[in-house]
Each structure stands twice: as C-alpha cells, then as structure tokens.
C-alpha cells in the first residue's frame, strides 16, 4: 500500500511540522513517563534496601543501572519524532516521579531530567529526526549519561573523589547500553506490535 497523499487526506497528516505536538503525542509521552516512572519506582523499592546494605559499594552499583533512567527520551523521540519530545518526556517522567510517586530526590530530579533529556535528544535532533540507526541510539545514551553526569557529579560531590573516573566510565557504559541500545530494541518491538502505527514512526514505516 503506497501512502501517496490523496487529495482527501488532510495535509496535517502527510506534512506535519516537527515542532508541533498533537494531543495524542502528548498523551503518549505522558504514558511513557507514567509507565517508566512506575517501573523505576517498583525497582527502586527493591533497590533502596539493597543499596543501604551494600553501603559505599551500593552507591557505585547504582551507576550500573543509570542508563535505565534515560530510556524514556529516546523512545519518545523515536515514536513522536517531534522537536523537544525527549526533553519533555524526561521532565514529565520526573514530574510524575516527584509529584505522584513521591520520589525523595525532590525537585532536583526536574533539572537532572531536563539535562539528560537534552543529551539524549541531541543526536536525533542533529539528524533532523530522520536517522534512527544503532549509532544514533548509542550516541543518545552516551550524551544523555554524559550530560547528567556533570550535573550529578557537581550535586553529589564526585569531583575530586578518587573514584571519579570509575564512576564516569560505569555511567557512560550503562548509558550507551541501557539508555541507548536497549531503547532501540524496545522501540522496534513496539513497532512490531502495531500500537505505535498511528504516530510519526508508523507514518515513516508506511512511507
């Protein structure tokens, strides 16, 4: 089936500007934030106890999973393909965590979310939301974790610590794998199920 725009197809559907969100896009971004917020929350419930038990090692062990916190942005960008989708997705996810799930980190999460969302979105934005290969996702994870590392390092006083480079290495690796490559796996699995057919990603596949 070719998707050549017919005269009766509204122009909005075929040539949508990449800076305008539809309500459907916004709700999708919120749903991503809600679901990942919930899953993180469920994980953190299990995690907090463990990290207290592990003491200093727990603090480091947390870095291994850091990439998981980046997932929302690349997934939202890949599905909606609209400017700022990643940043907004991360901010909404953090709002949901703080306001509705009562995260103890407090409002600093908003700032961290905006920074890491910007990092995650940047590689896609530079390619004008048209390139979604493994490289873009990996770079997304790398920049997302790199950006937020600078903020976290400042906030948690990692600068000047002996462990500084170890932390950086773990976080960047986690960012690439869990926050980048895993996002591609999830996006493609979602595309196969058909639930995102009616978003920009579906239009791109049908084109």
């Amino acid at each position: 089936m070719s998707a050549a725009p017919s005269t009766t197809t509204p122009a909005a559907a075929s040539a949508r500007p990449i800076h305008r969100f539809t309500l459907k896009d916004l709700v999708l971004i919120v749903v991503l934030g809600v679901v990942f917020g919930f899953l993180y929350w469920a994980l953190v419930q299990a995690w907090t106890g463990l990290s207290i038990l592990l003491g200093p090692a727990g603090d480091l062990a947390q870095h291994v999973l850091l990439g998981g916190w980046l997932l929302v942005a690349p997934i939202a960008v890949a599905i909606v393909r609209t400017r700022f989708a990643g940043v907004i997705a991360e901010i909404l996810a953090s709002v949901i965590e703080v306001v509705f799930l009562g995260s103890a980190v407090g409002p600093m999460l908003f700032v961290a979310a905006a920074i890491q969302g910007a990092g995650s979105e940047l590689p896609f934005a530079l390619r004008r939301y048209s390139s979604f290969g493994w490289g873009s996702y990996a770079l997304s994870g790398l920049l997302g974790s790199g950006f937020v590392f600078i903020f976290s390092a400042f906030r948690s006083g990692w600068f000047g610590q002996d462990l500084f480079f170890l932390r950086l290495g773990i976080q960047l690796a986690s960012g690439v794998i869990l926050g980048g490559l895993l996002a591609k796996v999830i996006v493609e699995a979602l595309a196969k199920t058909g639930v995102v057919d009616n978003y920009a990603i579906g239009r791109a596949l049908n084109a």
Partner: peptide, 22 residues
C-alpha cells in the same frame, strides 16, 4: 479517521454540516 488514525478516505463526510476531513 483520518486525522489521528492513518487512513485514506475518499468521498465526503459531514457532521452537523461540517466536513470532517477538513
């Protein structure tokens, strides 16, 4: 259909006199 769910629609549909495609 077709504003949110992608589809090709031919013919005309009106609701209370308004063209739904437009």
């Amino acid at each position: 259909v077709p504003h949110s769910v992608i589809a090709r629609v031919t013919g005309s549909v009106t609701v209370a006199g308004r063209d739904t495609l437009a």
